[in-house]
Design a protein around this nucleic acid. Structure first.
Lengths: 142, 142
DNA sequence: GTCTGACTTGAAGCGCGGTTCAAGTCAAGG
DNA sequence: CCTTGACTTGAACCGCGCTTCAAGTCAGAC
């Protein structure tokens, strides 16, 4: 059973994350190691599932602190569950924004208007009222 | 016609952005003012459309530099147009990630598994291979 | 004419999410 | 036993996207 354990280099390679990021996540309480081999961390393979979740959540714009809170969730924490449902709803808005951006880019990449940014067919995707609604949101590295 | 011009405070209020952000965007070349009334910037109302686009793009994870490049686009810049089309494709992946996160959160907010994070129905949304594919992406403020 | 407060500037600072560095430890292979 | 190189630590640093600050200007209302 102990032969199933992975060292940080293996986890880094399999997850695609840097070892420094794994140590950082451990310090922030997002993952934990199964123990040590000497000084070295040993990880259970299940940490890879956990990391997949973390990568997805980070990619969806969640902060480390938010992810930590969600990971600690128990069925009894009604307030946290409510916040999760709320986050899901906000993700709908984020998705809508990404779809508008995608459509705008597709248009722009095939449009002959000069300059592109003034094309009405392009601008149609970005109405000012939608921007106002979006002001507290945002995704990240694209 | 000159009565149509807005000062920075009005633009801030109407766009939902801070005046400091507007000055920052101007310095980065994302927007420009129509001139000055004394020392004070005057903006054309059209800047609000431009800002809507910027807010959307920022929310979709684009950096200031990327947005500046796209805003300078002309139909003749084939390489930039190719990059736009490429970005649109990547947005599809981002959208898929947000959808998985949304579904996972919806499940979690109604799930009785203890701890929630170990629920198979929840984890199903976050397969390790999807995380690997996502490694260079990410949205932002959620 | 004078007051007020929204504007101006450049530079410094902040929060986030890590990365990098220097110095040291130690498991495993030969 | 000795070497190697992947690991360990805490602290310093980085890039991004602004925000804040100090010091000053000045348009518009009174």
């Amino acid at each position: 059973m102990s032969e199933e354990l992975l060292d940080i280099g293996e986890v880094a390679e399999r997850s695609g994350l840097a070892a420094s990021a794994l140590r950082f996540y451990e310090k922030q309480g997002l993952i934990d190691s199964a123990g040590r081999n000497g000084l070295r961390r040993s990880y259970r393979p299940g940490v890879l599932d956990r990391l997949a979740l973390i990568v997805c959540a980070r990619g969806a714009g969640f902060t480390i602190a938010e992810i930590a809170a969600f990971l600690r969730a128990t069925p009894g924490d009604l307030e946290l569950r409510a916040r999760m449902a709320d986050k899901a709803t906000r993700l709908e808005e984020d998705i809508a924004r990404l779809e508008r951006m995608r459509d705008g880019l597709r248009h722009a990449s095939a449009c002959t208007h000069e300059p592109l940014v003034e094309c009405p067919g392009f601008k149609r995707h970005f109405p000012p009222d939608a921007a106002l609604a979006a002001r507290r949101a945002g995704v990240g590295r694209g």
